[in-house]
């Protein structure tokens, strides 16, 4: 519904300065997002979460929505390299930031990210609904701590849940991922 005040402006003819004053600081809906190295132009509602934009506007359905309440980790993506719950951040908040989803991990030639390769080599997840979230957290983990202990890996992955409760194997993925990612270990 338009407010009476806005109608008043409309009937008084163009008053660009007053109009600008009314919406000062308010965000534009049509924005450009940096997703997986691409500039994506997208129409985003003010109240839209990043998970929603990624899945339903940009078609990047690798990012899963489990609880939608920052309580499961399935929606984990990287925002400027930092793992975050995409269900609990407004898309407008991450404007100008680098967003990386599970789709953005592999090289253009199809080479898998070391973390993805580690998961494959160790036999993969059970139902794998949690896999994209876990893999994104592992990517953030190997960046921050390339040589974690199993306990440190468990801490780094403590923001992701696996309802198959296959945590032991997931920690094995994490350790293998660290091994593949660490340049120190390449020739050992």
């Amino acid at each position: 519904m338009l407010r009476p005040l806005r109608w008043a402006i409309f009937f008084k003819g163009p008053q660009p300065l007053l109009g600008a004053l009314l919406v000062q600081g308010s965000v534009e809906r049509l924005i450009t997002l940096n997703v997986n190295g691409q500039q994506r132009r997208v129409d985003v509602m003010k109240q839209e979460t990043l998970a929603f934009t990624l899945r339903y506007k940009l078609g990047l359905t690798g990012t899963k929505l489990g609880c939608d309440r920052a309580a499961c980790g399935a929606c984990t993506v990287l925002i400027d390299g930092v793992n975050s719950y995409s269900c609990s951040v407004l898309t407008h908040t991450v404007r100008g930031k680098e967003i990386t989803t599970i789709e953005g991990l592999e090289e253009p030639d199809g080479t898998l990210h070391p973390v993805q390769q580690a998961v494959l080599d160790e036999g993969g997840f059970q139902c794998a609904f949690c896999a994209p979230g876990f893999i994104m957290s592992m990517v953030a983990m190997v960046e921050a701590n390339p040589n974690p202990t199993r306990e440190e890996a468990a801490q780094a992955l403590s923001g992701n849940l696996c309802r198959c409760a296959d945590y032991d194997k997931i920690l094995t993925f994490a350790m293998r991922a660290a091994e593949y990612s660490s340049p120190l270990d390449l020739h050992v």
Binding site: G25, S26, V27, Q47, C67, D68
Partner: peptide, 26 residues
């Protein structure tokens, strides 16, 4: 537990660049 609904109800969103600007909006 939480019921997942389609969308957060609409609101106007402001992203001020100063604390003063934020307080003005508040």
């Amino acid at each position: 537990m939480a019921v997942i609904r389609d969308m957060i109800p609409a609101f106007e969103l402001f992203q001020p660049t100063s604390a003063e600007g934020a307080i003005e909006l508040l």
